[in-house]
Simulated scan of single mutants.
Amino acid sequence: MPAPAPDNRNDRRRAGLTAFMKSEAAVQGFSVCRITLPDSIPEAPERLAAFIAAGQHGTMAWMEETQARRADPRVLWSEVRSVVMFGLNYGPDEDPRHLQTRPDRGAISVYARNRDYHDVMKGRLKEVATRFAARAGADVKVFVDTAPVMEKPLAAAAGLGWQGKHTNLVSREFGSWLFLGSLFTTAELDIDTPEIDHCGSCRACLGACPTDAFPAPYQIDARRCISYLTIEHKGVIAKELRPAFGNRIYGCDDCLAACPWNKFAQEASEMKLKAREDLLEPELRFLLSLDDATFRTFFSGSPVKRIGRNRFIRNCLIAAGNSGSAEFADICFTLMDDEAAEVRGMAVWALSRLLPTETFKMLRETRLHIEEDADVRQEWN
Protein backbone atom coordinates (compact mmCIF):
# COMPACT_ATOMS: atom_id res chain seq x y z
CA MET A 1 0.00 0.00 0.00
CA PRO A 2 1.25 3.54 -0.70
CA ALA A 3 2.31 5.57 2.30
CA PRO A 4 -0.40 7.93 3.58
CA ALA A 5 -0.11 11.50 2.43
CA PRO A 6 1.32 13.83 5.08
CA ASP A 7 -1.27 15.81 7.02
CA ASN A 8 -0.64 19.39 5.92
CA ARG A 9 -3.76 20.84 7.49
CA ASN A 10 -1.64 22.79 9.97
CA ASP A 11 0.41 24.25 7.13
CA ARG A 12 -2.74 25.31 5.28
CA ARG A 13 -4.20 26.83 8.43
CA ARG A 14 -0.98 28.73 9.16
CA ALA A 15 -0.83 30.03 5.59
CA GLY A 16 -4.48 31.04 5.72
CA LEU A 17 -4.05 32.96 8.97
CA THR A 18 -0.92 34.64 7.64
CA ALA A 19 -2.72 35.78 4.50
CA PHE A 20 -5.65 37.00 6.60
CA MET A 21 -3.34 39.01 8.87
CA LYS A 22 -1.65 40.76 5.96
CA SER A 23 -4.95 41.39 4.21
CA GLU A 24 -6.37 43.04 7.32
CA ALA A 25 -3.22 45.15 7.66
CA ALA A 26 -3.74 46.45 4.14
CA VAL A 27 -7.41 47.19 4.83
CA GLN A 28 -6.36 49.33 7.81
CA GLY A 29 -3.97 51.32 5.64
CA PHE A 30 -0.65 49.94 6.81
CA SER A 31 2.07 50.28 4.21
CA VAL A 32 3.78 46.99 5.03
CA CYS A 33 3.25 43.97 7.29
CA ARG A 34 5.79 41.23 7.94
CA ILE A 35 6.19 38.44 10.50
CA THR A 36 9.07 37.09 12.57
CA LEU A 37 9.70 34.81 15.53
CA PRO A 38 10.02 36.07 19.10
CA ASP A 39 13.57 34.69 19.30
CA SER A 40 14.72 36.39 16.10
CA ILE A 41 16.89 39.08 17.74
CA PRO A 42 19.39 37.10 19.87
CA GLU A 43 21.98 39.89 19.68
CA ALA A 44 19.59 42.45 21.20
CA PRO A 45 20.28 41.81 24.92
CA GLU A 46 24.02 42.34 24.59
CA ARG A 47 23.66 45.46 22.44
CA LEU A 48 21.06 46.98 24.74
CA ALA A 49 23.19 46.25 27.80
CA ALA A 50 26.23 47.94 26.21
CA PHE A 51 24.14 50.99 25.26
CA ILE A 52 22.87 51.40 28.80
CA ALA A 53 26.23 50.66 30.43
CA ALA A 54 27.80 53.45 28.38
CA GLY A 55 25.14 55.86 29.65
CA GLN A 56 24.09 56.66 26.09
CA HIS A 57 20.41 56.46 27.06
CA GLY A 58 20.76 59.73 28.93
CA THR A 59 18.02 60.31 31.50
CA MET A 60 15.69 57.68 30.01
CA ALA A 61 15.80 55.55 33.17
CA TRP A 62 12.86 53.50 31.98
CA MET A 63 15.14 51.81 29.44
CA GLU A 64 17.27 50.37 32.22
CA GLU A 65 14.26 49.50 34.37
CA THR A 66 12.67 47.47 31.55
CA GLN A 67 15.91 46.10 30.09
CA ALA A 68 15.11 42.38 30.47
CA ARG A 69 11.64 42.65 28.95
CA ARG A 70 12.86 44.96 26.21
CA ALA A 71 15.63 42.64 25.09
CA ASP A 72 13.48 39.53 24.64
CA PRO A 73 9.79 39.41 23.58
CA ARG A 74 9.40 36.10 25.41
CA VAL A 75 10.25 37.77 28.71
CA LEU A 76 7.58 40.39 27.98
CA TRP A 77 5.04 37.64 27.17
CA SER A 78 6.08 34.02 27.53
CA GLU A 79 3.22 32.66 25.39
CA VAL A 80 4.02 34.62 22.24
CA ARG A 81 4.65 32.45 19.17
CA SER A 82 4.69 35.02 16.37
CA VAL A 83 5.57 38.70 16.22
CA VAL A 84 3.85 40.71 13.50
CA MET A 85 5.47 44.03 12.58
CA PHE A 86 3.56 46.83 10.86
CA GLY A 87 4.91 49.89 9.08
CA LEU A 88 3.06 53.08 8.14
CA ASN A 89 4.66 55.44 5.66
CA TYR A 90 4.84 59.05 6.86
CA GLY A 91 7.31 60.39 4.31
CA PRO A 92 7.10 64.19 3.85
CA ASP A 93 6.25 65.81 0.54
CA GLU A 94 9.57 67.69 0.58
CA ASP A 95 12.90 67.63 2.36
CA PRO A 96 12.16 69.03 5.84
CA ARG A 97 15.68 70.46 6.10
CA HIS A 98 14.69 73.40 3.89
CA LEU A 99 13.15 75.04 6.96
CA GLN A 100 16.61 75.55 8.43
CA THR A 101 16.95 78.57 6.12
CA ARG A 102 13.98 80.21 7.88
CA PRO A 103 15.19 81.26 11.35
CA ASP A 104 11.92 83.11 11.98
CA ARG A 105 10.12 79.73 11.89
CA GLY A 106 10.17 76.73 14.20
CA ALA A 107 11.10 73.32 12.79
CA ILE A 108 8.91 70.53 14.17
CA SER A 109 9.87 66.95 13.30
CA VAL A 110 7.84 65.47 10.45
CA TYR A 111 6.35 62.74 12.61
CA ALA A 112 4.81 65.28 15.00
CA ARG A 113 3.06 67.51 12.49
CA ASN A 114 -0.31 65.87 12.88
CA ARG A 115 -2.19 63.63 15.29
CA ASP A 116 -0.13 61.51 17.65
CA TYR A 117 0.85 58.49 15.57
CA HIS A 118 0.76 56.27 18.65
CA ASP A 119 -2.98 56.80 18.92
CA VAL A 120 -3.58 56.42 15.19
CA MET A 121 -1.57 53.22 14.82
CA LYS A 122 -2.87 51.63 17.99
CA GLY A 123 -6.44 52.19 16.87
CA ARG A 124 -5.73 50.48 13.55
CA LEU A 125 -3.79 47.67 15.20
CA LYS A 126 -6.68 46.97 17.55
CA GLU A 127 -8.97 46.59 14.54
CA VAL A 128 -6.59 44.06 13.00
CA ALA A 129 -6.14 42.27 16.32
CA THR A 130 -9.85 41.95 16.99
CA ARG A 131 -10.61 40.42 13.61
CA PHE A 132 -7.56 38.16 13.69
CA ALA A 133 -8.28 36.87 17.19
CA ALA A 134 -11.83 35.99 16.16
CA ARG A 135 -10.58 34.15 13.08
CA ALA A 136 -7.63 32.37 14.72
CA GLY A 137 -9.01 31.74 18.19
CA ALA A 138 -5.66 32.97 19.49
CA ASP A 139 -4.57 35.54 22.05
CA VAL A 140 -3.11 38.81 20.81
CA LYS A 141 -1.42 41.91 22.23
CA VAL A 142 -0.67 45.12 20.32
CA PHE A 143 2.07 47.65 21.09
CA VAL A 144 3.01 51.10 19.79
CA ASP A 145 5.60 52.35 22.28
CA THR A 146 3.22 51.18 25.00
CA ALA A 147 5.50 48.38 26.22
CA PRO A 148 9.26 47.71 26.15
CA VAL A 149 9.43 46.29 22.61
CA MET A 150 12.57 46.64 20.46
CA GLU A 151 10.61 47.54 17.37
CA LYS A 152 13.48 48.34 15.01
CA PRO A 153 15.45 45.07 15.44
CA LEU A 154 12.21 43.07 15.21
CA ALA A 155 11.16 44.99 12.10
CA ALA A 156 14.52 44.19 10.49
CA ALA A 157 14.16 40.52 11.43
CA ALA A 158 10.68 40.53 9.89
CA GLY A 159 11.95 42.03 6.64
CA LEU A 160 10.48 45.54 6.79
CA GLY A 161 13.93 47.00 6.35
CA TRP A 162 17.29 47.19 8.11
CA GLN A 163 18.72 49.37 10.84
CA GLY A 164 20.85 51.94 9.11
CA LYS A 165 23.97 53.62 10.40
CA HIS A 166 21.70 56.21 12.07
CA THR A 167 20.15 53.27 14.02
CA ASN A 168 16.72 53.93 12.48
CA LEU A 169 14.92 51.52 10.19
CA VAL A 170 15.55 51.96 6.46
CA SER A 171 13.28 50.45 3.83
CA ARG A 172 13.99 50.03 0.13
CA GLU A 173 10.36 50.98 -0.49
CA PHE A 174 9.84 53.78 2.04
CA GLY A 175 13.28 55.09 2.90
CA SER A 176 13.68 56.19 6.53
CA TRP A 177 10.04 57.20 6.97
CA LEU A 178 8.13 54.36 8.64
CA PHE A 179 6.12 54.39 11.84
CA LEU A 180 6.36 50.99 13.52
CA GLY A 181 3.90 48.97 15.56
CA SER A 182 3.73 45.33 16.62
CA LEU A 183 1.24 42.57 17.32
CA PHE A 184 2.20 39.59 19.45
CA THR A 185 0.11 36.45 19.13
CA THR A 186 -0.03 32.88 20.39
CA ALA A 187 -0.86 31.76 16.84
CA GLU A 188 1.86 30.25 14.67
CA LEU A 189 2.24 32.13 11.39
CA ASP A 190 4.47 31.89 8.33
CA ILE A 191 7.72 33.77 8.89
CA ASP A 192 9.15 36.32 6.46
CA THR A 193 12.77 36.61 5.40
CA PRO A 194 14.91 39.17 7.26
CA GLU A 195 16.22 42.15 5.30
CA ILE A 196 19.96 42.61 4.77
CA ASP A 197 21.91 45.82 5.27
CA HIS A 198 22.03 47.96 2.11
CA CYS A 199 23.89 50.98 3.54
CA GLY A 200 27.19 50.02 1.95
CA SER A 201 29.86 52.68 2.34
CA CYS A 202 27.34 55.55 2.61
CA ARG A 203 27.73 57.82 5.64
CA ALA A 204 25.23 60.54 4.66
CA CYS A 205 23.14 60.18 7.81
CA LEU A 206 26.18 60.35 10.08
CA GLY A 207 27.50 63.49 8.45
CA ALA A 208 24.09 65.17 8.57
CA CYS A 209 23.83 65.15 12.36
CA PRO A 210 24.17 68.74 13.66
CA THR A 211 25.48 67.65 17.07
CA ASP A 212 27.67 64.67 16.11
CA ALA A 213 25.47 62.25 18.07
CA PHE A 214 26.88 59.12 16.39
CA PRO A 215 30.09 57.94 18.08
CA ALA A 216 30.34 55.25 15.38
CA PRO A 217 28.16 53.84 12.61
CA TYR A 218 25.14 51.98 14.04
CA GLN A 219 25.62 53.67 17.43
CA ILE A 220 23.85 56.72 18.85
CA ASP A 221 24.53 58.72 21.98
CA ALA A 222 21.15 60.13 23.00
CA ARG A 223 22.84 62.73 25.18
CA ARG A 224 23.91 64.57 22.03
CA CYS A 225 20.80 63.90 19.93
CA ILE A 226 18.53 66.90 19.29
CA SER A 227 15.45 64.67 19.23
CA TYR A 228 16.25 63.35 22.69
CA LEU A 229 17.26 66.74 24.06
CA THR A 230 14.18 68.60 22.81
CA ILE A 231 11.66 65.88 23.67
CA GLU A 232 12.88 63.57 26.45
CA HIS A 233 15.40 65.69 28.33
CA LYS A 234 13.89 67.72 31.17
CA GLY A 235 16.97 69.47 32.47
CA VAL A 236 19.33 72.16 31.28
CA ILE A 237 20.66 71.60 27.76
CA ALA A 238 24.43 71.81 27.49
CA LYS A 239 25.51 75.27 26.32
CA GLU A 240 27.98 73.93 23.80
CA LEU A 241 25.20 72.06 21.97
CA ARG A 242 22.61 74.84 21.79
CA PRO A 243 24.02 76.72 18.77
CA ALA A 244 23.78 73.53 16.68
CA PHE A 245 20.03 73.30 17.30
CA GLY A 246 19.31 76.08 14.84
CA ASN A 247 15.52 76.42 14.75
CA ARG A 248 14.78 72.77 15.61
CA ILE A 249 12.25 73.06 18.42
CA TYR A 250 10.81 69.52 18.56
CA GLY A 251 12.88 66.64 17.27
CA CYS A 252 15.30 66.54 14.36
CA ASP A 253 14.92 64.89 10.96
CA ASP A 254 18.36 65.54 9.52
CA CYS A 255 19.75 62.00 9.66
CA LEU A 256 16.49 60.58 8.30
CA ALA A 257 16.19 63.15 5.54
CA ALA A 258 19.79 62.60 4.41
CA CYS A 259 19.24 58.91 3.63
CA PRO A 260 19.63 58.26 -0.15
CA TRP A 261 17.03 55.49 0.03
CA ASN A 262 14.34 58.15 0.50
CA LYS A 263 14.40 58.84 -3.23
CA PHE A 264 12.97 55.38 -3.84
CA ALA A 265 10.14 55.86 -1.36
CA GLN A 266 6.77 54.86 -2.71
CA GLU A 267 3.86 57.25 -2.74
CA ALA A 268 1.75 56.96 0.37
CA SER A 269 -1.85 55.84 0.36
CA GLU A 270 -4.76 58.15 1.10
CA MET A 271 -4.65 56.85 4.69
CA LYS A 272 -1.25 58.42 5.30
CA LEU A 273 -1.17 61.07 8.02
CA LYS A 274 -1.14 64.50 6.42
CA ALA A 275 0.67 67.33 8.13
CA ARG A 276 -1.33 70.16 9.66
CA GLU A 277 -0.76 73.29 7.59
CA ASP A 278 -0.12 75.37 10.71
CA LEU A 279 2.65 73.00 11.83
CA LEU A 280 4.59 72.96 8.57
CA GLU A 281 6.30 76.33 9.08
CA PRO A 282 4.94 77.82 12.32
CA GLU A 283 6.06 81.34 13.21
CA LEU A 284 8.55 81.29 16.04
CA ARG A 285 7.20 84.51 17.54
CA PHE A 286 3.71 83.02 17.77
CA LEU A 287 5.04 79.87 19.44
CA LEU A 288 6.98 81.93 21.99
CA SER A 289 3.77 83.72 22.95
CA LEU A 290 1.94 80.55 24.02
CA ASP A 291 0.92 80.30 27.64
CA ASP A 292 -0.06 76.94 29.13
CA ALA A 293 -3.71 77.11 28.06
CA THR A 294 -3.04 78.21 24.49
CA PHE A 295 -0.22 75.69 24.17
CA ARG A 296 -2.56 72.86 25.15
CA THR A 297 -5.23 74.07 22.76
CA PHE A 298 -2.90 74.63 19.81
CA PHE A 299 -1.22 71.23 20.18
CA SER A 300 -4.34 69.28 21.10
CA GLY A 301 -4.00 65.72 19.75
CA SER A 302 -0.34 66.33 18.82
CA PRO A 303 2.62 64.48 20.39
CA VAL A 304 4.16 67.91 21.04
CA LYS A 305 1.61 68.41 23.82
CA ARG A 306 3.23 65.66 25.89
CA ILE A 307 6.40 67.64 26.68
CA GLY A 308 4.45 70.50 28.20
CA ARG A 309 4.52 74.21 27.57
CA ASN A 310 7.62 75.04 29.62
CA ARG A 311 9.96 72.57 27.94
CA PHE A 312 8.58 73.59 24.55
CA ILE A 313 9.16 77.30 25.18
CA ARG A 314 12.68 76.41 26.39
CA ASN A 315 13.30 74.88 22.97
CA CYS A 316 11.79 77.87 21.15
CA LEU A 317 14.03 80.26 23.08
CA ILE A 318 17.09 78.35 21.92
CA ALA A 319 15.82 78.81 18.37
CA ALA A 320 15.32 82.52 19.03
CA GLY A 321 18.86 82.80 20.34
CA ASN A 322 20.14 81.08 17.22
CA SER A 323 18.10 83.30 14.87
CA GLY A 324 20.56 86.19 14.89
CA SER A 325 17.55 88.50 14.78
CA ALA A 326 17.09 91.21 17.39
CA GLU A 327 13.37 91.22 16.60
CA PHE A 328 12.99 88.43 19.17
CA ALA A 329 14.64 90.40 21.96
CA ASP A 330 11.39 91.94 23.21
CA ILE A 331 9.55 88.65 23.68
CA CYS A 332 12.67 87.07 25.22
CA PHE A 333 12.76 89.99 27.64
CA THR A 334 9.15 89.31 28.60
CA LEU A 335 9.90 85.63 29.21
CA MET A 336 12.62 86.54 31.72
CA ASP A 337 9.72 86.99 34.16
CA ASP A 338 8.16 83.59 33.42
CA GLU A 339 7.22 81.40 36.39
CA ALA A 340 9.27 78.46 35.03
CA ALA A 341 13.00 78.61 35.74
CA GLU A 342 13.80 76.61 32.60
CA VAL A 343 12.05 79.29 30.53
CA ARG A 344 13.76 82.17 32.32
CA GLY A 345 17.15 80.55 31.89
CA MET A 346 16.80 80.13 28.15
CA ALA A 347 15.41 83.65 27.81
CA VAL A 348 18.62 84.91 29.40
CA TRP A 349 20.73 82.77 27.06
CA ALA A 350 18.82 83.98 24.01
CA LEU A 351 19.27 87.61 25.02
CA SER A 352 22.99 87.04 25.55
CA ARG A 353 23.17 86.21 21.84
CA LEU A 354 20.74 88.81 20.54
CA LEU A 355 21.76 91.92 22.45
CA PRO A 356 25.00 93.92 22.18
CA THR A 357 27.47 92.84 24.87
CA GLU A 358 27.30 96.09 26.82
CA THR A 359 23.49 96.11 26.75
CA PHE A 360 23.40 92.57 28.10
CA LYS A 361 25.85 93.43 30.87
CA MET A 362 23.69 96.34 31.95
CA LEU A 363 20.64 94.09 31.95
CA ARG A 364 22.46 91.54 34.09
CA GLU A 365 23.28 94.17 36.69
CA THR A 366 19.60 94.96 37.10
CA ARG A 367 18.29 91.40 37.02
CA LEU A 368 20.83 89.01 38.52
CA HIS A 369 20.22 90.01 42.14
CA ILE A 370 16.48 89.21 41.95
CA GLU A 371 16.98 85.72 40.47
CA GLU A 372 16.99 82.89 43.01
CA ASP A 373 17.27 79.83 40.77
CA ALA A 374 20.83 78.52 40.54
CA ASP A 375 20.55 77.38 36.92
CA VAL A 376 19.18 80.73 35.79
CA ARG A 377 21.90 82.58 37.71
CA GLN A 378 24.42 80.43 35.91
CA GLU A 379 23.01 81.61 32.58
CA TRP A 380 23.48 85.23 33.67
CA ASN A 381 27.07 84.54 34.63
Rank of each mutant, 00 (worst) to 15 (best):
P243Q: 10
D116F: 09
A107L: 12
G345K: 09
F286Q: 15
M336A: 03
T101C: 07
D292T: 13
A257C: 10
L288E: 01
H198S: 02
L76N: 14
T366D: 10
L241A: 14
P194G: 05
K234L: 13
A134D: 12
A326I: 15
R115S: 09
P194L: 06
S82M: 09
L76W: 15
A68M: 00
G16C: 02
S323K: 13
E232T: 01
A340Y: 04
V80R: 04
E24G: 01
R131F: 06
W77G: 10
E173L: 06
R276M: 13
W162M: 05
A158T: 07
L88Y: 11
A50W: 04
D338G: 00
L17Q: 12
P260I: 07
L17V: 09
L99A: 11
A61C: 06
Q28G: 01
I191E: 07
I196R: 15
G123S: 10
L273M: 14
A216D: 13
I370Q: 15
C332P: 05
G321K: 07
I35D: 02
N315L: 12
L189R: 11
M336Q: 12
I226F: 00
D72G: 00
E232V: 03
L256R: 09
R364M: 07
H166T: 09
S269I: 08
W177Y: 11
Y228H: 02
E240R: 15
R70S: 03
A26I: 01
N247A: 08
D278T: 09
A326F: 13
A157L: 14
T66K: 11
